[in-house]
Amino acid sequence: MITKQELGVLGDLAQLSLDPESRDSTLRAINEVLELVAIMNTAECEGVKPLAHPLEAEQLLRSDKVTEVNQVAKFSQAAPLFKEGLYLVPKVIE
């Protein structure tokens, strides 16, 4: 079970804000999922190696060749704010 405060932390991690009206319902919904998931605790997994990929195959490597061409004109059409070749965001102070 997570608390309202933890929900706030998760929101920061995931860059999501929740308006006050939906906060309670979201918290309830997340906790329902966690409850559903809790049945895992009854499983015995001692010494079992986690499985990340269903097929357990190995990575094929790509040869070091330049295969891409400049498509900035096409790609930038999808950008909300694009000027002088750059994607713009509100000024960031490091």
Binding site: L81, E84, L86, V89
Partner: peptide, 15 residues
């Protein structure tokens, strides 16, 4: 690269 100097109100992103 984040370019902070190119614009007044924006940071420009060059990928």
């Amino acid at each position: 690269k984040s370019l902070h100097e190119a614009f007044d109100r924006y940071t420009g992103i060059d990928l």
